[in-house]
Computed example of a mutant assay.
Amino acid sequence: MEPQTQGPMVPPEMLRQRPKKSWLLPACIGIAAGTVLGLLIGSAVSDGGGIASGLTQKKIDQAVEACAIDSEGFTVMNDGSAISLNTKGKDYTDTGTSNIFAYYCMLNELGVPETTQEKMDRTRAMDGTQSDTWDSLKASWSYHPDSGVNVVIEGVN
């Protein structure tokens, strides 16, 4: 007997048809698009751009314009990613803004929460430097009657 090299003959109408994988191409495209989108969002967040931008020069400029604070009341630092706000104390040599309304306007325009502002208002000279963090920002401040309130607001990484 000779070995059989082919299987039994089956009529074509009896062969089982394999289902087409019509879902495969859209699934691959979806996975690739999701990966690219995830990388772009992750890059924007880690670079401090886009979604979690923190403090920017543009935001500081808008606040200064809206509040009309004098130049002695603030200092822009770290290429526009931080700002120092200063109020004038009792010492005649102290610099800082004497316009307390412009100071509070700046805090509001820069997005400092009311709870943080209240903590700032309650700080005494003997409390030392205090700090608070919210969203993507951090503020640290101190107060002394002679030198006024000194606040630094910066982005958090």
Rank of each mutant, 00 (worst) to 15 (best):
M1Q: 10
E2T: 14
E2P: 13
P3S: 05
Q4K: 15
P8D: 13
P8V: 03
M9I: 12
M9H: 12
V10E: 12
P11W: 11
P11K: 13
P11F: 13
P12W: 03
P12A: 10
E13N: 14
L15W: 09
R18G: 08
P19A: 10
K21A: 15
S22Y: 05
S22G: 13
W23V: 08
W23Y: 13
L24I: 12
L24E: 07
A27Q: 05
C28I: 15
C28D: 00
G30K: 06
G34I: 02
G38M: 10
L39W: 09
I41S: 04
G42R: 05
A44Q: 15
S46H: 14
D47A: 13
G49L: 12
I51C: 02
T56M: 01
Q57P: 00
Q57S: 14
K59M: 11
I60Q: 05
Q62W: 03
Q62N: 14
Q62E: 15
Q62F: 08
A63T: 06
A63H: 02
E65T: 14
E65F: 09
E65V: 12
C67T: 04
A68I: 02
I69Q: 09
I69N: 07
D70A: 07
S71M: 04
G73E: 01
G73T: 01
F74H: 09
F74A: 04
T75D: 11
T75Y: 00
T75Q: 14
M77H: 08
D79A: 14
G80L: 08
A82F: 03
I83D: 07
L85C: 05
N86C: 05
N86R: 15
N86P: 00
T87A: 00
T87H: 03
K88C: 00
D91V: 04
D94W: 00
D94C: 09
T95D: 10
G96A: 01
N99H: 09
F101C: 00
A102Q: 04
Y104D: 11
C105D: 02
M106K: 01
L107S: 02
E109M: 07
G111C: 07
G111I: 02
G111T: 08
G111M: 06
V112C: 03
P113R: 07
P113D: 06
T115H: 07
K119H: 02
M120W: 08
R124A: 12
D127A: 09
D127Y: 03
D127Q: 04
T129A: 08
T129I: 08
T129F: 00
Q130H: 05
Q130L: 07
D132E: 14
T133P: 01
D135W: 06
D135I: 03
S140I: 00
W141F: 04
Y143F: 15
H144F: 09
D146C: 00
D146S: 11
D146E: 13
S147L: 11
S147Y: 14
S147R: 10
V151W: 07
V151F: 05
E154K: 13
V156L: 07
